[in-house]
Design a protein around this nucleic acid. Structure first.
Lengths: 208, 208, 208, 208
DNA sequence: GATGAATGAGCTTTCATTCAT
DNA sequence: AATGAATGAAAGCTCATTCAT
């Protein structure tokens, strides 16, 4: 009984934590880490600043939790693709789609990656060294790549070379969308871009 | 005579402006826009805070001048490549080399792009809208791309699709280098990456 | 219960706000708006600068609140006179007395009017346009004047002509007192001045 | 010869001094003493800040010179009235007219009195103590008053009581004009106001 | 006389974090 | 768990004045 009670409480607290995390995610990605203030987040949550500190011990910790959360979420989506019985080319297409759909429907996630995580090294240097906070996401890309190589679809090259292409490309497009310089809507680039990625990475004897 | 005097003075002031710009570039790219303070910059310049404001009217204006400067400098280097009588494939190789050499020898420039310009929209929204402050750089990439298409070497696709690939990829690699996660030194990836880019963009009847 | 608690808290905060307002009133009227600094006010209140900003969002807002407060306070005193069953002449006498007593006992109030409100247009231009922040006070003078006219004691003339006389005169005397050029103490001028005002405004068939 | 040269030079310098003084007068009266900066004045004069300091040794000194200048100028105008063979009543009318014409045509002068001199005690406390910088002006008002008394037109009362009425009233009206609250144009109040002043001060056996 | 770069103290305002309630 | 007043260090920026040229 008591344990149930405690569990329930913990769950409730954990749930509130995530709510805060999502509110902060939105603000950080819109306004940036330094422009967003703790009172901003508290106001959005309709809770007091003091209470916010009962859930997160500092602004930095909050930012780190968010990147872990986003990385996990993206990883799960890519994980699903990795486990489908489809061609490497189709996998690329689906990953691009997942990314672009997210950039359009939940731009906070992608923007957080680009504008908060990538840009503010000092915020993540103590706790997220060496990209460990985005490890789940990187792992899935690595799985995708290695399976593609094993299947003979992708050339065997340094993983980072492939990773930089894949994620740099997608991130670059998301950035251009954020700057409102794209002449067409982001999702309409999906096929072209998936094709480009496939051509760049595919092994010479793979299918066109 | 008098005019000469004035010209000389103006030149001297202009020169000092650029010195400040370079000092700020270094600090901004190392510590970020918000963590770098005006006193930091003044200290580095061994000049008073007040005097700094005789050269730039605000921290934001300074940041915008820097991106214009960096964009111009990168543009000039790519411009030189664009005007050489070499194959499209070779041009890609040289642009990648230029970018990676810079990322290694003058990392401030590339880091400024990635960590200051890309990440702090609010700093550039008033004065650098729609990427106009990086126009010289984008223009050169556009020239490269269109000439490659005209020569029959590259497929004719939406420019942004190609631009996102090219610059997203290079930026992504520079970022990974900054995070110290690359197992090899950046420049050793040059050939692999130039090859990937070429494969992604080349027309089907171009040379391998 | 909970509501009571909140109400009590709000009251306490409101009270503190007024304490700050009075401290600032004193400093502003002694040293002027620009010479008085926010740290000066905080020091006088024995509170931190940051906390002061929990009560007022800017120095200007503080200055505007003060003039509203002073105007209200003066208005109430004149209101009381307006509702007494006494002659217009006697009303003038009492208003002059109120003003001079205040100029002697609480010189901050009058000095604030003369040296802060009247002199620093830019501070009040956004929020106190068209004298709205001193409306309560002006209204009472208007009531006094119109009742005097209705009673047949005062000539019917443009209100501003009468207002300028009344308040310009009193303000002028308070200023001379502040400059220490008056040979006698301010209050000893009361009768003479009330007489002058009455003579200036009275209708030709009113009592001497 | 040499002396002539020097005189000419001195004259030229004196002339420039007055030009600066008038430029500063305008700025101070428009924007206030503290909001106006030395560079503002230099810019208006199209001269360098450094050179400005060859004419005035400090901002305060400049402000004091201005009030002396304005006081002298007003004094001369009133002096002319004082020496005309006209009735006391007519003198009042003319002084009011002079003041209001000035408030309309050269508002800087009157505004300087009201918004700079009256309000910023600390600026004038060292050099203009006890209103000595406005002595010429006060003296003329005193002459007017005493001649009116001697002629039997005005009641013999404390000078400051009369001075406060006269100048407070005119200043008050000029202030109201500056606030744009007057329903009519300032000069149209002249007669009414001159009449009010006369009634307030006239001796009981003087003409209506 | 003339210039304007240089100084440096000081201004208003912000904000992550704490803690008494 | 919840509140929000309080802290205090530090930020961006200003400006009267000086002085080498």
């Amino acid at each position: 009984m008591e344990r149930d009670l405690k569990t329930k409480k913990v769950d409730k607290k954990e749930q509130r934590r995530i709510e805060i995390l999502l509110a902060a995610l939105e603000l950080f990605s819109q306004k940036g880490f330094y422009v967003t203030t703790i009172p901003d987040i508290a106001r959005k949550m309709e809770m007091s600043v003091g209470n916010l500190y009962n859930y997160f011990s500092s602004k930095e910790e909050l930012a780190q939790e968010i990147i872990r959360y986003v990385s996990q979420l993206l990883a799960e989506k890519i994980h699903a693709v990795n486990h489908q019985p489809i061609s490497t080319k189709e996998k690329i297409r689906r990953i691009v789609k997942i990314y672009f759909d997210m950039a359009v429907d939940q731009p906070q996630m992608i923007e957080y990656f680009l504008r908060v995580y990538l840009a503010n090294r000092e915020v993540f240097s103590d706790g997220c060294e060496g990209m460990i906070c985005v490890a789940p996401f990187m792992t899935e890309i690595m799985v995708f790549f290695e399976e593609g190589v094993r299947a003979g679809d992708l050339r065997n090259q340094d993983f980072f070379s492939a990773f930089g292409l894949f994620m740099g490309y997608l991130g670059g497009m998301a950035f251009l969308k954020g700057e409102n310089v794209l002449p067409k809507e982001l999702q309409s680039y999906s096929d072209e871009i998936a094709e480009n990625i496939y051509r760049a990475l595919k092994s010479d004897n793979a299918q066109a």
